Amino acid sequence: MGGREEVMDRLAGCSLDLCTGPLSRHGEGMKTNTAYVHGYSPQEARRLGDQADTLAALLHAGTAYAAGSRVLEVGCGVGAQTVHLARNSPGARITAIDRSAESLAQARSYVTAQEPGADVEWHTADLHHLPFDTAAFDHVFACFVLEHLPDPDHALAALRRVLRPGGTLTVIEGDHGSVLLHPDSIHAHEVIGHQVRLQAAAGGNALLGRALQPLLTGAGFDQVVVRPRTAYADATRPALVDGLTRKTFIAMVEAVRDEALSTGLTTAADWDRGIADLRLTADEGGTFHYTFFKAVGVNP
């Protein structure tokens, strides 16, 4: 990110109101650098793998492509979702792209180890400048990608170009405004809000899930259907408490601590109090709720 003054300019308009303000307009009018707010550390790679494995049944249910189908996965990252795409659609011909060559190298190794028979081609490419012919794919899959873009509508136009008429687009996004906690804590919600603000300043929108239907419809897709996929964790679901609450969500928020402090969003004491309260939701007697949104549209 830029200097402190520039960053504070970006953050100034980021209201904690989850329904209005720059966040609900994908950062419109804000200076952005389109950085991946979670970073590319080994810890983040592990978090993405934990997230994908924990949520595979929830997010990938109903997504299976016929053998021989040409499937484009955009923003594949370290291959965490690619493994589940390949596992659910044996025989599909998957093309996975990411702008990070380092992430693609990790993805290739990970998928080869997990699904050695998967038919996957790997390309370093920018989603806005896809190196594929028009109508080259039968299906497009994008999971947790649009939330990091300042112009998701333009990205969807690029995806429509490479999708054949009658082909499907599947988009999965979260929405940090859907978080419900017990014990509830304003301090925990404040640290979540800091992550939302930082993602907005980087050009993204951590509240994008709620907007998928109008977003895809506005991009020209037909028959758009959005289904909420609710994740709920309590002591009776220890795998979800560990995989979702601790290793996915809390780990994601904790990762922006240094940036939240350096940009003046919070103090160390306030941050630590909020994280401590957030961790209580993963203890005995705590509960955590989050809603993902899965949208499917057809290219007319």
Rank of each mutant, 00 (worst) to 15 (best):
G3R: 05
M8S: 13
M8Q: 15
A12S: 06
A12Q: 09
G13A: 06
L16W: 04
C19R: 01
T20Q: 04
T20K: 03
P22Y: 06
S24K: 00
G27T: 07
G29N: 07
M30C: 08
T32E: 13
T34I: 12
V37I: 13
V37R: 06
H38N: 11
S41F: 13
Q43H: 15
E44P: 05
R46A: 14
D53T: 10
A56C: 10
A56W: 07
A56I: 08
A61E: 15
G62P: 06
Y65C: 01
A66V: 13
G68R: 08
S69K: 04
E73K: 13
V78S: 08
V78R: 05
H84S: 13
L85R: 10
L85F: 13
A86T: 10
A86C: 15
R87M: 12
R87T: 14
N88L: 14
A92E: 10
R93Y: 06
R93G: 09
I94V: 15
I97R: 00
I97K: 00
S100C: 11
S100L: 08
A101C: 14
E102G: 14
L104G: 03
Q106T: 14
A107L: 09
V111Y: 03
T112I: 09
T112P: 05
A113W: 10
Q114S: 14
Q114A: 15
Q114H: 13
Q114E: 15
P116M: 12
G117K: 10
A118G: 11
D119H: 15
V120C: 13
D126A: 09
D126W: 06
L127K: 08
H128W: 12
E147N: 05
L149T: 01
D151W: 06
D151P: 02
A155L: 05
A157F: 06
A158L: 00
R160A: 03
P165K: 06
T168R: 01
L169P: 05
E173F: 02
H176K: 02
G177L: 03
G177S: 04
S178A: 02
V179R: 01
L181Y: 04
L181C: 03
H182Q: 04
S185M: 04
H187W: 01
A188Q: 00
E190A: 04
G193W: 03
H194A: 02
R197N: 03
R197K: 11
R197H: 00
L198T: 02
Q199S: 01
Q199L: 05
G203D: 04
G204C: 09
R210G: 01
L212S: 06
P214M: 02
G220D: 06
G220R: 10
D222Y: 01
V224L: 09
V225G: 04
T230F: 03
A231Q: 05
Y232N: 01
T236K: 06
T236M: 09
T236F: 09
L240E: 07
V241Q: 09
L244V: 07
K247P: 03
I250E: 04
A251N: 07
M252D: 09
E259V: 02
L261M: 07
S262E: 14
T263C: 08
T266K: 09
T266N: 08
A268D: 14
A268R: 05
W271Y: 12
R273P: 07
A276V: 09
A276S: 14
D277L: 05
D277P: 10
R279A: 11
E284N: 12
Y290F: 15
Y290R: 08
T291H: 10
T291D: 06
V296A: 10
G297S: 14
G297K: 10
V298I: 15
V298M: 15
